[in-house]
Design a protein around this nucleic acid. Structure first.
Lengths: 152, 152
DNA sequence: TTCAAAATCACCCGAAAGTATGAAGGCAAT
DNA sequence: ATTGCCTTCATACTTTCGGGTGATTTTGAA
C-alpha cells in the first residue's frame, strides 16, 4: 500500500516536472546556456527525489539487543525441588521417601513404620542412598540434600 | 574521508553526464521528442544516483528489538538467624557450635576434633542441647533448628 | 567472695545407625 | 529369555549415638 503510494507520488512528481520543464523551456529559451542550468536543476531535483525515495523505502536494519534480566528465585517462600540434581543422583522413589523422612528427623524404626516395611529394608534403602549420594551418615545425606534443594 | 570520496565521485559522475549529454545532444538532435527521452534518462540516472547516495551516506535505520533473556540466579545467602527463637531455647555458645556442626553432617568424633575437645565433651553438649530443644536425636535437632531458622 | 552456669572430661550401657552379604520376587527393556 | 534395577527382607557384626551419672575447672554475676 505505502509502496504503491510512493510510486504514484514518484510518477506524479515526474509528470509535474515535465510540465515545469516545458514551461522553463518556453521562458528561458532565449537565454544562452539555459540548457545546462536546466539539466542541473533536473539533476538536482531527481537526486533529491532519489534520496527521499531511498530514505523512505529503505528497509530498516534490525538490530537485536539482548537484555539480560536477572530473576532472583525466592528461596524462603516457595520451595521448588531441583529435579535436575535429583535425577543426577538417580535415587529410586523408595530411597527418596526414606531420605525425606530422615530429613524430618525420624529414626529408621519410625521410617519403617511409616512406609510399612521392615527395619532391615529401611537400612538397605538408606545404605543404597548413602552410596548414591556419596555420604556416610544420615545427617550428611540430609545436609547434602538440602544443599542440592532436593528437600526444603 | 569516505564522505569526501563520495562527493568527488558525485561531482565526477555529474561532469561525465554533462559530457554524455553533449554527445547525445549532437547525436539525437535530429530525432523528434529526443528531448523528452533525454530528460527521462537524466531523471532516471539522477534518481538512481540519489538512491545510491542516500543508501551510502545515510545513517542506517536501526530498529532495536529488545529481547529479554531471563537469567535465574540462586538467591545468595539471604539467611538471617532467628535470634528470638535462639534466645528462647537458651542454648549456650558451645552447644550452638555443636548444633551447627551436627547440621553439617559431622559425627560427634569429628565435632570433637573441630572444637578441640574430647568426644565425651561433645556428647555432654549434645545431650544438653537435645534436652533444651526437647528432641531425642541429632537429626530431629537439626530439623527443628532449621524450622526455627536457627541454622540455614 | 560465693554461687550458678558453662565447659570440660570420664565411664558405662543400651539403642540406633551403619556395613557387608545374601536372597527372592517384580517389572521393564532388549 | 536374559539382564538390570527396584523393592523387600534377613543375619551378623561394628560403629556411633544417646542417656545416666559424676567430676573438675573456669567464668561471670550477685
Amino acid at each position: 500500500m505505502l509502496k504503491y503510494k510512493h510510486i504514484l507520488l514518484y510518477g506524479f512528481s515526474l509528470a509535474m516536472l515535465l510540465f515545469l520543464l516545458k514551461w522553463l523551456q518556453l521562458r528561458f529559451i532565449i537565454i544562452d546556456h539555459a540548457f545546462e542550468i536546466y539539466i542541473g536543476i533536473i539533476a538536482a531535483l531527481f537526486t533529491g527525489l532519489g534520496i527521499w525515495l531511498a530514505l523512505k523505502l529503505a528497509k530498516p536494519k534490525v538490530e537485536k539487543v539482548i537484555v539480560e534480566k536477572e530473576i532472583y528465585i525466592e528461596k524462603g517462600n516457595g520451595f521448588t525441588r531441583n529435579e535436575r540434581a535429583l535425577r543426577q543422583l538417580n535415587l529410586s522413589p523408595r530411597e527418596l521417601d526414606v531420605l525425606e523422612l530422615m530429613a524430618a528427623g525420624l529414626t529408621n524404626q519410625e521410617i519403617a513404620g511409616r512406609l510399612f516395611v521392615s527395619l532391615n529394608t529401611v537400612k538397605t534403602h538408606s545404605m543404597n542412598l548413602f552410596e548414591k549420594m556419596d555420604v556416610a551418615r544420615r545427617t550428611q545425606a540430609v545436609a547434602k540434600a538440602r544443599e542440592l534443594s532436593i528437600i526444603p
